[in-house]
């Protein structure tokens, strides 16, 4: 394994993307929730680390689903 190994390029790792602040607001409004009610991901999660996220960022995760084809989910980055 060389130095430029990226977990996000692995087949089994779903697509992650940081969403901008205003989109977060929108998201929270649609679900009528507080950020803390979102599912969470640790900053030191390999993917979050690779994307250089900060606690408080919200990630959009798009994964393949056996039932729905594609499933979109959101995760709040939290400190360890």
């Amino acid at each position: 394994m060389g130095k430029n190994y990226e977990v996000s390029r692995h087949d089994m790792v779903p697509e992650h993307e940081v969403i901008p602040g205003e989109k977060v607001e929108e998201l929270l409004e649609t679900y009528e929730i507080d950020v803390r009610q979102l599912p969470k991901i640790l900053v030191n999660d390999p993917v979050a680390k690779e994307m250089e996220t900060e606690p408080g960022d919200v990630l959009r995760v798009v994964r393949k689903s056996p039932t729905a084809g594609v499933a979109v989910s959101y995760r709040l980055v939290i400190e360890r």
Partner: peptide, 14 residues
């Protein structure tokens, strides 16, 4: 606590 566990039930809401 109203924390979201799944954005849509079963990913497809069915």
């Amino acid at each position: 606590r109203d924390t979201i566990v799944q954005m849509i039930y079963g990913d497809d809401g069915i």
